[in-house]
């Protein structure tokens, strides 16, 4: 579903992402891990077509993110970091706007929006202005926005960041439910999250991949069996090398 081949991104003389390659198949949940500034968000932004890679290539459901950007984008649902939304719209209006913006058939608009409001459990706030919502609700609205066209690929940039434990649990539950028929990429720096939802983990540091495997094999690398320790040792090693 997602094929990434030696993706690179430079900002002037700063290398944000260096030669990143991986593949994700259907039904997989990939966790992108790494310290802040490791290049997770930049990688995701390149996949969603928001920024162009300096070099390298990626395909979403067989569509190139460079030559067939719009086609690739129509297969992706994306929750950007901090879930930015149009604050002065109300929830239903916002979802209808995104529905139209995606160019989906007009006849099913009302029923689809209804469906998605239910799926993301935001029916009770449907006529509230987005700026008045709590963080948890905003995150769910952002998730709803990403799901409205029933995409094959979901890209979530720190979807549980800043939420309380209950809200985190809710969001993870939604993600787990979706995992069966979709390809999901989640970035996070919370390690328990990888354990909770991902079946594969990639650790990035300094723009490079330094681990690619299952959460279980990641744990096995540590004598204590704790993710924290492995994460520390892998990313610190990398930083020392650079």
């Amino acid at each position: 579903m997602i094929v990434v081949e030696s993706l690179c991104k430079n900002f002037d003389d700063f290398f944000a992402v260096k030669d990143v390659s991986f593949q994700v198949g259907k039904g997989q949940v990939l966790g992108l891990l790494g310290p802040n500034g490791a290049g997770k968000s930049t990688t995701m932004r390149m996949l969603t077509g928001f920024i162009n890679p300096t070099s390298g290539h990626a395909k979403i459901c067989g569509h190139s993110i460079l030559q067939e950007k719009e086609k690739a984008q129509s297969h992706i649902g994306y929750v950007p970091e901090n879930a930015p939304l149009y604050d002065d719209m109300d929830v239903r209006e916002f979802l209808e706007f995104i529905y139209d913006l995606r160019g989906l058939p007009r006849e099913q608009k009302v029923s689809r929006v209804e469906e998605i409001l239910k799926l993301c459990v935001i029916e009770d706030v449907e006529s509230q202005k987005i700026e008045t919502l709590s963080k948890g609700y905003k995150r769910r609205v952002s998730l709803a926005q990403a799901l409205i066209h029933n995409p094959d690929v979901l890209i979530l940039d720190e979807p549980t960041d800043g939420l309380d434990p209950n809200q985190k649990h809710e969001v993870r539950k939604v993600i787990k439910n979706l995992a069966k028929e979709k390809t999901i990429v989640i970035s996070t720096h919370i390690l328990e999250e990888v354990d909770a939802v991902c079946d594969r983990a990639i650790i990035m540091a300094q723009g490079k991949i330094c681990f690619d495997g299952t959460p279980a094999s990641l744990k096995a690398q540590s004598p204590t069996g704790r993710l924290d320790d492995v994460f520390r040792s892998i990313t610190m090693q990398k930083e020392a090398l650079c």
Binding site: R45, T48, G49, F50, K69, E70, K71, Q73, S74, I76, Y78, P80, E81, N82, P84, L85, Y86, D87, I98, L101, R102, G103, Q145
Partner: peptide, 14 residues
């Protein structure tokens, strides 16, 4: 400023 530009241009909008 609000970052919604990222939302907008991750949609199939040129």
């Amino acid at each position: 400023k609000r970052g919604t530009v990222e939302l907008l241009f991750s949609m199939p909008v040129t």
